[in-house]
Amino acid sequence: MTDLEMKLKAEAKRLLDEHLVDVFIGFRKENAPLHPQPAFFTNSDQLDDFVYNNLCQNNLAKFLTRYPHETKIGMIVRGCENRSVNHLIVERQHPRENIIMIGVPCTGIYDWRKITQRCGEEISDVELSPGKITVKTSKNQFEFESKELLHVSCARCSQPNPISADLVIGEPVEPKDPARAKRQVETFGGMTAKARYEWFTHESERCIRCYACREACPMCYCAECFVDHGAPRWTESMVSKAGMQTWHIIRAFHQTGRCVDCGACERACPMDIRMTYITEKLNTDMENEYQFICGMDDKTQPPFAAFTMDDKTRFVA
């Protein structure tokens, strides 16, 4: 157990033992390789298999909306999760006073797909050490630098440090390469329209409409998603081009001004479909046009909710 894990666990134990929280949301040791599991501790006896490492791929803010407002929730937050929680507070999904955020400066989440792809063999064991990962397979042993394995969202993360946690454990870390986000959006935008549509088509046509992307996203908490509507039916029910493209366009659009680029949607997808190239575009648009970055505080309304008469200067034609 790492020093950081020990400290986090001790903090979770304290919060639970002192009844400061009803539930502590963190991670526990995996059964399946590379996939630690979100865990919901209600009692400090349950903390035995507590883990925290770079393979913890889910955005824990997802689970905030499952509890009634009165529940006192303690949780681990990394930079992106902190911002998700902030934005959920803006959207009145849980009162700030009933959340205790234990912040962890984040060194980035490893993309499990990259690991399996690089190895190309069945993985039997994984060892994590700072900046490095050692993977044992049936026949070989591989060493990787952590930066090779970061999920694309983490590689361009601008806010790895929690910004409004109640307590931060660990030293602040440097942002990775935040300029990369704009660079990627620009590079993509610089391709021809034809190439961009081909890219989009190629990604969306693998979709099996399992909605893991939706279920993994902290902002997808609607009681009924537009694709599940029976009347009116908003889109085709099949895995047809129309159905899949609508899903990819509208899911992303519903995150406008609400997405923190945590990448949880992409990591959840069983078909390796890229999605953040769309949400990042929306994020940069919101930043450029409305100087809005989601979740930087727990008060500011997102652009779609914050329109005023001043907007009249923006009308053209």
């Binding site: 961009r196 890219w199 992303a252 659009f253 406008t256 929306l282 648009d285 919101m286």
Partner: peptide
């Protein structure tokens, strides 16, 4: 207008 930009982004 944000939607128009989004569609443009994916090649429309």
């Amino acid at each position: 207008s944000a939607f128009q930009k989004l569609l443009t982004h994916i090649g429309f």
